[in-house]
Amino acid sequence: MIGGRGKAAKAAREARAKALWQAMTVRYRSDGHIRFDLPDALRTPGAALVLEEGLGRIEGVYRVHVFPGAGKLSIRYMEDVCGIAPIAKALAALVTEAVDMDAAVPPPSVPMVMEGEVVPPGWLDRIKDSAPVRAVRSRYDDLRAKIDVVSKIVAIKTGKPVPGGVDVQEWIIHFLNDLVAFYLIRSHWDRIIGQWLPRPWAFRYQWMTVVYLTFLLVRYRKGAVPKLVKK
């Protein structure tokens, strides 16, 4: 009797997992990026954690994110390392694992707030939640993840670990400094050629500014200690 109930429960669970898997339609697909529609049962924190951790263990997949509000699953991967077939196979197995995790989760405790009182978010939270900042942070995370994956691929192909790592933040700062210097030179080029060089003493303050900015740039470059990306 107990064995029959267990088989019936297992069959019902597998049937539900199959129905959820069939409900996950492809919303968007491009090179190295695919998004799925998620049914309501797979939008819970527990199910999202199972999907993100399980797919993140696939070699070549460098970013997985579940958007519960929008009901979508975003997967970014390196096409040279991982194709769509192993991702789909692993995703089907993970749906079976996450099928029973749609139970109601008790809401987290929140501090007592007086009735009618509205606590506005701070200015820092508003900046972090703004669309441009979120887009930049997303691109930054993607770049770091891609560099990490490429380093692992090089280590596997050569049989030697890649020495050190690339600090993306430091690289971006150097790039922006060079970009600002190029912009200043480009925007003042006519004055440099037509006025500053023929009459350097008359424009001595401008030359002092140029020398000081160059000194700061060189000092920063020499003082910047190479950093290793934390694994």
Rank of each mutant, 00 (worst) to 15 (best):
R57Y: 02
W21A: 14
G69T: 00
P108Q: 07
K72R: 13
S151G: 14
D125A: 14
I34C: 05
P111M: 08
A47L: 05
L73N: 03
S74K: 01
D80Q: 13
A93D: 15
P111A: 14
A93P: 03
A17Y: 01
F67N: 15
V105P: 00
E53P: 00
D125L: 11
P106C: 09
D40S: 11
S130Q: 09
M114N: 06
V61M: 06
P45T: 06
T44A: 06
G32C: 08
M101E: 15
I75W: 02
L55N: 05
K7I: 09
K146Q: 15
A19G: 00
R76I: 07
V26S: 00
V61P: 06
Y28D: 13
R126T: 07
S74I: 11
D100N: 14
D80C: 01
P111N: 05
P132I: 08
I58T: 12
G60R: 04
L124S: 07
A92D: 04
D40I: 05
E14R: 05
W21S: 12
R63A: 12
V118C: 05
T25I: 01
E117K: 05
Y77S: 01
V119E: 13
V99F: 04
A103G: 15
G32M: 10
G32Q: 08
T25A: 13
V26R: 03
V66A: 10
D141K: 10
V95T: 10
Y62A: 09
V136Q: 09
H33V: 13
M114S: 10
G32Y: 05
G83S: 13
D141S: 14
G32L: 10
S109T: 10
E53V: 06
R76F: 15
P39L: 04
K72A: 13
V136I: 13
R13A: 11
R144A: 09
T25V: 07
D142N: 13
A17F: 00
R76L: 15
A15K: 06
